[in-house]
Design a protein around this nucleic acid. Structure first.
Length: 570
RNA sequence: CGGGAUGUAGCGCAGUCUGGUUUAGCGCGCAGCGUUCGGGACGCUGAGGCCGGGGGUUCAAAUCCCCCCAUCCCGACCA
């Protein structure tokens, strides 16, 4: 591609809305442009990256025997009624009506369509197992689109759905998908972690997430450097790191302390000059029937609502109406409305001499002894782990990383096939629902995640496997006929050898070409300039580490090919 | 949906508080000419704005008031 004929509009300044590097760089390097909130156009260079990511995913999916097909974006509501998700999904689902008033949605995912296809045409165990995938645009009306492509409302995803006759076949496909995903990450040269995950609204049994490690990632990963255990912090198991129990001695009689205007743990600890763990926080949750539950935990811990939900087996949300009876900021387990059941985090077992709210505005209680003074309905694990907590498996200390979720695989089981009556005739001659799995991977999200992980202050640093072009060939001046001639010649030579090259033949100063080159981040920069005029040598610079080489023109193709083969894993 | 903010040239912004000296500005980018030419050069000339939209107040509105829309930030949701 000749730069002068291309369309790579780069920007010197950062767009105002960009909060994280990948967002700023995708826009600045001319990969994407925003059309509306959470909706983006992909410009030619961005489109090339998308295509490369897709191809790697295709190759790895095909290798496992999965089959590609293409499903509609527009999906009729009746299929969603059948699966029950028309009601469950909520406002995140883009819904619309056709001219006859029939309801449709823009697919946020394709379980319904896939299950319907299976219902139509998979009749016998002889047709199984089957794993079908597509690469398709998806829609989710996110509450808050953010971070460019990382949280967009329209995005591209690969999604695969497997159909099996039993759990062990599902396990086999699941494991194949797991290793295919691993290969995909490796081929793109990404640092990543695979973590155990929550299954969320899609439902099902076990589930893993693939996280690209990045400091600005939205997800928190807890992992054990010793035994390799890693999980999404939402569902991570752990043993709390506890000081010895005598730290909590000194349990005299309860006394009231005046704490005017002190409504949060930080200020409370500050005000009373104690550590946060000597306070106990009380959080009220309600269920659909507006019944209130109290959860208490150590002041320095965060309540994990999904753990609370699992414990009670129902959906819960924060109770936020502060009133006379439940003065938020001054809640406490002692003297709380006896109607409210109190659940205590396991870390509070035997804890005494702590501060709690007094259930009265501007007052807290001192010397509370959990066992003595509080009527605990049950103890459980309701908190998030923190760095330094103990690994349940091996007893080492856990660590925390930030990551971007780019893939998620689930064992769905029969959730959809049962509801949608998608059944096959088994070996025993009886109808059975398919045992399903589903495997998603966010393609536009990978694009962002890669940049988030691989960039410096000058721009993007593409891994060769998915760079829009491999080589940025640039001549420092168009005035020198020798350079123009050599540029043309080398451009042709590289093209003839099947190398993807962006030839910067623009009539702009060399400085601009260098800056744009670093910004766009192609793996190799080949410079024809002084060195060529003086000594007939071509300069080559590696984007990833700045290393420079001087190459004889006759060796340039070999140099580039060697670089590619050493840099791309197959 | 709650809380906060912003909307002025393609991009980044000033001007708004205190209405009129503003023919609405600056930097970048864009076009032409000339000088430059290895890390976002310089000079000159130029194109480009219903100041987000609608309504109102006023002799006079980018500026004051009301409504709407869009965008962004914080929270709950999520690949």
């Amino acid at each position: 591609m000749r730069y002068s004929q291309g369309f790579i509009p780069t920007l010197k300044e950062e767009p105002r809305e960009a909060e994280i590097s990948s967002h700023a760089l995708t826009v600045r390097a001319g990969l994407i442009r925003k059309i509306a909130s959470g909706i983006y156009a992909f410009l030619p260079a961005g489109k090339r990256v998308i295509q490369k990511i897709e191809n790697i995913i295709r190759e790895e999916m095909d290798r496992t025997g999965a089959l590609e097909l293409f499903l509609p974006v527009l999906q009729p509501s009746d299929l969603w009624e059948k699966s029950g998700r028309w009601g469950e999904y909520g406002p995140e689902l883009f819904r619309l009506k056709d001219r006859n008033g029939r309801s449709f949605c823009l697919g946020p995912t394709h379980e319904e369509i896939m299950t319907y296809l299976a219902y139509l045409d998979i009749k016998s165990y002889r047709d199984l197992p089957l794993n079908l995938y597509q690469i398709q645009v998806k829609f989710r009306d996110e509450i808050r689109p953010r971070y460019g492509l990382l949280r967009a409302r329209e995005f591209i995803m690969k999604d695969a759905y497997s159909f099996c006759e039993n759990d062990s076949d599902l396990d086999e496909i699941y494991n194949k998908m797991h290793s295919a995903y691993t290969r995909i990450m490796e081929r793109m040269g990404l640092k990543y972690k695979t973590v155990e995950a929550d299954t969320g609204i899609i439902g099902g049994k076990s589930s893993h997430e693939f996280m690209v490690l990045a400091g600005d990632g939205e997800e928190t990963i807890i992992y054990c450097p010793e035994c390799g255990y890693s999980a999404n912090i939402e569902m991570a198991g752990f043993r709390p790191l506890m000081e010895k129990e005598e730290t909590f001695k000194n349990a005299g009689e309860i006394e009231k302390v005046s704490t005017p205007g002190i409504t949060d743990i930080d200020r409370l600890a500050d005000f009373l000059k104690i550590e946060k763990k000597y306070t106990v926080k009380t959080i009220l949750l309600t269920d659909e029937k507006e019944k209130i539950y109290a959860f208490i935990l150590m002041g320095d811990r965060q309540l994990n609502i999904s753990k609370a939900e699992k414990f009670l087996g129902k959906e819960l949300r924060l109770y936020e109406n502060s009133d006379e009876r439940y003065p938020i900021g001054y809640l406490g387990p002692v003297g709380l409305d006896p109607e409210i059941e109190i659940y205590a985090d396991r870390m509070l077992k035997g804890v005494k001499g702590v501060i709690t709210g007094a259930n009265k505005k501007d007052f807290h209680l001192r010397n509370v002894n959990i066992q003595r003074d509080v009527n605990i309905k049950a103890y459980g694990d309701f908190s998030y782990p923190v760095e330094g907590d103990i690994c349940e498996r091996c007893g080492s200390k856990l660590k925390i990383d930030k990551g971007i979720e780019i893939g998620h695989i689930f064992k769905l089981g029969k959730k959809y096939s049962e509801k949608m009556e998608a059944r096959f005739l088994g070996r025993d001659g009886r109808l059975k629902p398919f045992v399903m799995g589903c495997y998603g991977m966010g393609i536009t999200r990978i694009l962002s995640a890669v940049i988030e992980q691989m960039h410096d202050d000058k721009g993007i640093i593409w891994p060769t496997a998915i760079a829009p072009y491999t080589v940025n060939l640039l001549i420092t001046s168009l005035k020198e006929e020798q350079l123009v001639g050599a540029g043309e010649e080398i451009y042709e030579k590289l093209l003839d050898s099947g190398i993807e090259v962006l030839y910067d033949d623009r009539e702009v100063s060399a400085g601009i070409k260098f800056k744009d080159s670093d910004l766009l981040g192609l793996p190799l920069k080949i410079v024809l300039g002084r060195k060529y005029l003086d000594e007939g040598l071509i300069e080559v610079q590696l984007r990833k580490n700045g290393k420079q080489f001087e190459i004889n023109p006759k060796d340039i193709v070999k140099f580039v090919k060697d670089f590619i083969s050493s840099d791309i894993k197959k």
